[in-house]
């Protein structure tokens, strides 16, 4: 059934991504690729992996942007994966019912056995969250690691998505965004978490925490340092004046 679920639980599992602390190390990309190549569904394949033009399917990718305008320019690393939208356009366009939104927790998934590889869901997604596997030819996307979060064979600390588990700067958080008291909802509340491209009407569950404004001072100790001599003296001073005179 590719209609969006009519009755939904209040549970909305998703990620909160902190653009302030992400250092762009791509560890989450590697963790995601590794977990999703060995576990749920078809492996995330590569073509020409060791050749001149390597390419492959990834369901989590890190862009980097230069942001200018207010104060000093800065680089923001920008992880992007499926946002598990409440009004997911990728689900309703699917002709076979392979693409669905799970009623109990809102995770958007693909039943790979039913996927004909038409690619229409990838076209319908504004975020580029879905990629067709180059070998299995079915649509791949972030599953929020359903085979980890529900897996009672794993230690409790590991029952979170692989990207969240591996992030060394704690820039990724996983939880129930439908529960206002959850730690992720609290983070969104405290830091002004935002939707990507809200005008697309997709109502993403995943939220992004904007970078904190940078302080103007470069170093808090700077005012205590001795000022640099503005007029050179001695031999350097003579050289400076002599070279100036040469024109």
């Amino acid at each position: 059934m590719t209609d969006l679920p009519e009755t939904r639980s209040t549970k909305k599992l998703g990620l909160v991504i902190d653009l302030d602390t992400c250092v762009g190390c791509h560890a989450c990309v590697v963790a995601c690729k590794a977990w999703n190549t060995e576990n749920y569904g078809a492996a995330l394949a590569d073509t020409d992996a060791h050749g001149a033009a390597p390419s492959g399917a990834f369901v989590n990718r890190i862009h980097s942007y230069e942001v200018t305008g207010d104060g000093a320019p800065r680089i923001v690393h920008f992880p992007k994966s499926c946002l598990h939208c409440e009004d997911a356009p990728c689900v309703t366009v699917c002709p076979t019912g392979a693409s669905y939104k799970r009623a109990e927790d809102g995770i958007v998934l693909v039943n790979e056995d039913q996927c004909i590889g038409c690619g229409l869901c990838a076209w319908a997604c504004p975020y580029g969250a879905r990629e067709q596997d180059p070998v299995a030819k079915v649509m791949k996307k972030c599953t929020l690691c359903v085979d980890r979060i529900d897996n009672e064979n794993l230690p409790e600390a590991d029952r979170i998505p692989a990207c969240v588990r591996t992030c060394p700067s704690k820039a990724r958080h996983f939880g129930d965004l439908g529960d206002p008291d959850s730690h992720v909802s609290q983070l969104v509340e405290a830091r002004g978490g935002m939707d990507l491209a809200p005008e697309q009407g997709t109502r993403p569950v995943n939220k992004y925490l904007p970078p904190r404004p940078k302080e103007d001072e470069i170093d808090v100790l700077a005012p205590l340092l001795a000022p640099v001599a503005e007029e050179p003296k001695g031999w350097l001073g003579w050289l400076d004046r002599a070279l100036d005179r040469l024109g």
């Binding site: 492959g56 942007y65 920008f78 580029g128 990507l196």
Partner: peptide, 27 residues
């Protein structure tokens, strides 16, 4: 700017991958 939620001005600095991918080929 709206797609990234960043601003006032945003310019791509580095792509997530070195060669092409399904998204760049298709869209």
């Amino acid at each position: 700017e709206s797609a990234t939620g960043l601003g006032p001005r945003v310019r791509p600095f580095e792509a997530p991958h070195t060669s092409d991918n399904y998204l760049t080929r298709e869209m």
